[in-house]
Amino acid sequence: MTHRTTPTARICPNCDGFATAAITTGSRDRHGHRHTITANCPACHGQGTVPARAREAARA
């Protein structure tokens, strides 16, 4: 009896699933904590996956 497999995730090809990154600005506040900004992948908008219809459109 075969085991059913789950469909593979539709990982964004631009960010490889790492959709959000925290980037330090280099400065610190008065408590010594670093200031960071969040950058999202512009293709998947921070989701890490792409819809199937967008993936099919990219192949055409």
Rank of each mutant, 00 (worst) to 15 (best):
M1S: 14
M1F: 10
T2F: 12
H3Y: 10
R4M: 14
T5R: 09
T5Q: 13
T6Q: 13
P7F: 03
T8L: 13
T8H: 11
T8M: 10
A9W: 03
R10A: 12
R10I: 01
R10G: 05
I11T: 10
I11R: 05
I11H: 02
C12P: 01
P13G: 02
P13Q: 05
P13T: 04
P13K: 04
P13H: 04
P13Y: 03
N14W: 03
N14G: 02
N14A: 12
C15E: 01
D16P: 00
G17V: 01
F18T: 08
F18Q: 14
F18E: 11
F18R: 12
A19S: 08
T20L: 07
T20E: 06
T20C: 02
A21Y: 02
I23K: 03
I23D: 00
I23N: 00
T24C: 06
T24R: 05
T24D: 08
T24H: 02
T24I: 04
T24G: 07
G26R: 03
G26P: 01
G26N: 04
S27Q: 11
S27E: 13
D29H: 05
D29E: 04
D29N: 15
R30S: 09
H31I: 05
H31G: 04
G32F: 03
H33V: 06
R34E: 15
R34T: 13
H35F: 14
H35E: 13
T36P: 00
I37T: 15
I37P: 01
T38W: 06
T38L: 08
A39K: 09
N40S: 14
N40K: 15
N40T: 12
C41W: 03
C41Q: 02
P42C: 07
A43E: 12
C44P: 00
H45E: 12
H45G: 07
G46K: 04
G46D: 01
Q47D: 13
Q47V: 15
Q47H: 14
G48A: 07
G48C: 04
G48T: 02
T49A: 08
T49G: 05
V50C: 06
V50K: 09
V50T: 08
P51T: 11
P51K: 03
A52C: 01
R53I: 15
R53K: 12
R53W: 15
A54V: 14
A54T: 14
A54F: 08
R55C: 05
R55A: 14
R55T: 05
E56M: 07
E56S: 11
E56L: 13
A57D: 06
A57K: 15
A57P: 02
A57L: 12
A58C: 02
R59Y: 02
R59P: 01
